[in-house]
Design a protein around this nucleic acid. Sequence first.
DNA 1: ATGGTCGGTGTCCGA
Length: 269
Amino acid sequence: MSSRPLRLATWNINSVRLRIDLVKRLAEEENPDIICLQETKTVDDTFPLDAIRQMGYVHTVFSGQKGYNGVAILSKVPLTDVVIERFAGSEDKRHIAAKLPDDTELHNFYIPAGGDIPDVTLNPKFDFKLKFVDHMRDYFAHKRYNGSRAILVGDFNIAPGEHDVWSHKALLKIVSHTPIEVEKLKAVQDSQKWVDAARIGVPETDKIYSWWSYRAADWDAADKGRRLDHIWLSPASAEQFAGIRHLRHLRGWDQPSDHVAVIADLKQQ
DNA sequence: ATGGTCGGTGTCCGA
């Protein structure tokens, strides 16, 4: 008995109200079973739930705040055991988790961007980012997934690999690619032996991006991208892996997000 | 080459 794979998307939408039609377009073109959004930028009272339900995502959960941050899980399959955790002593809405029908634990994160200066003494936002990632490490270190299924997705605001950025050398002192951030994200990954789905069967030397700045005159020609958006799988979930795509063409849509969606397919028994 | 452009809200802040 086989069924079609579960299709999971993650996308920093940069205002779900402004770009609800882009969410609809992604739903129509790719038909993900689950869409994890970050930077929804709205309080829960004005979350566009009706429009999302009309797309078929009737099991949607969300956690937002006014103007900043905000995360949501749009799902066509039932969600249970919803958890909204605070990290690094902040009230920011940057995390939401739920269980899928096969007991997979799905976590959706929006890690702080961290400001411009990579120095914790000069830049409180960078300090907060590092503390947030440390807290994630501790949070997952206490869990005992062992052989069970779990997925960790979101906008991590960190491009860990040398070829997750357009120039490793040029970005070493740019927040999102500094060694301290990469080291701390690696500690999160090691906490549960998370598998980076984007690199399954893909050489580390292949360039992969999910974000291009709004500030480039021609983002496509300059192609100065970074891989900030990630899908990580517990070893048991990694056994289900059936493919991943970074939807570069979404960056060329009208009024785009600066991030594109990342989509993974997972085999279901 | 140290700017540039977005979104939400506001007369700037965060990305």
